[in-house]
Design a binder for these strands. Structure first.
Lengths: 218, 218
DNA sequence: GTCTATACTTGGATAGAC
DNA sequence: GTCTATCCAAGTATAGAC
């Protein structure tokens, strides 16, 4: 039987290596373009130029600019989830979690991965149907955050008052908002000091309620 | 002496009433377009069409699309500041403030005013110089939030641990993030219950620390 | 002074080349 | 199957009409 025709399917199965390389280049360029020029600057031409490829390839490989941007969001999400899961692997106390949260925030600022998410959310209202696609792709971020909270604050007296999924929703919102503001004013340090204060607060409340007995890091 | 020529100045002084009306129509249409179609959908054509005006008027009255969008942001900010200041007029306790915060959030969801801000922040990276302009226009939001915190939490024991301006920065970020997520998933109720829980928490910590003696609303 | 008709540029999408 | 040349729509901006 012969190889099938038409544009390559979303799944990478069977596509030639050349095709896969082109797709990967476009996705990488899309991520960079979203970070530097935002959603409204992420045109097929701008992305293809950055990748050194013909802009028509965007439509051949992904069908539309929106689909390419969603593929870029998928790539970023996957990358982040692997990193996040590794980061909370050995975390058990609220204090550990605060350390990890600050570390992750610092990384996100450097890599600009949250910027991609922010731009996609903000840009979603421009194209019918895009919002739903983006919404689907955020679910893992909520799930991850909720797990991290359960893992560390699960037996705290606050747990009954504050359902983990509502807290997770709030934390994700806070990350997005802080990313936006930091991106705008360029004041990295401010948010890092805010994380420091939050950590003090957690420590204080922990000692107060005796749900997080002081223990040395590691 | 004769009336001066050229495009009308930014300040409304001296401009004819007709000019002022046109400008106002364009600004209103720009706000609506930002809310419904986002930054990337807010083109001169889309805005002018919504206003029932020729798209060339955008450039005559504002010089560029970016300038019109900034004027729209100014209008929204001014409107919100008036409302905010009225809202905290008679507020003194943390509990009152939480009530007002929830009320303001509800209004913002209805009017979509925060959406305008979010879209402008996210869209700022597309055009050189726009970010700085937007940043300037957020300053009053921080200032307002800080004042509200000082007014209600100023004599709380937390005040020394958490500087009001850092808290204000965080609260603004949280509002922006919650707006984004709510806009995306359409789940109004979720955030309102979150506000409810936050209020419980404030009450609890207040009683705990005896800085907010229970008092009936009004 | 205000606005419209027109010029030019960029973007999305595809027909056809390899 | 992969990619490029080309087409048409949408965007910004201005020259010129009123």
């Amino acid at each position: 039987m012969m190889a099938k025709s038409g544009p390559p399917s979303k799944v990478a199965s069977g596509g030639s290596e050349r095709s896969a390389n082109t797709r990967r280049s476009l996705i990488d360029a899309a991520i960079e373009t979203l970070k530097e020029n935002g959603f409204s600057g992420a045109s097929a031409r701008a992305i293809a130029e950055r990748a050194g490829l013909n802009q028509g390839l965007v439509f051949y490989h992904f069908g539309s600019v929106s689909n390419l941007l969603l593929a870029a969001l998928d790539a970023v999400s996957e990358d982040r989830m692997i990193r996040f899961n590794a980061a909370i692997e050995n975390v058990s106390s609220p204090n550990d979690l605060m350390d990890v949260a600050a570390q992750i925030y610092r990384e996100d600022l450097d890599t600009g991965h949250v910027t991609v998410l922010v731009e996609m959310i903000a840009g979603a209202s421009s194209t019918p149907g895009l919002g739903a696609e983006v919404a689907t792709r955020i679910v893992p971020w909520f799930a991850f955050t909720k797990d991290a909270i359960d893992k560390t604050f699960g037996d705290s007296p606050f747990a009954s008052l504050l359902p983990a999924d509502d807290v997770a929703y709030t934390i994700v919102a806070l990350f997005l908002g802080l990313e936006m503001l930091t991106h705008l004013d360029g004041d990295r340090e401010r948010v890092l000091t805010i994380f420091g204060r939050a950590q003090q607060l957690v420590t204080m409340l922990g000692a107060f309620n005796a749900f997080a007995p002081p223990k040395e890091t590691s």
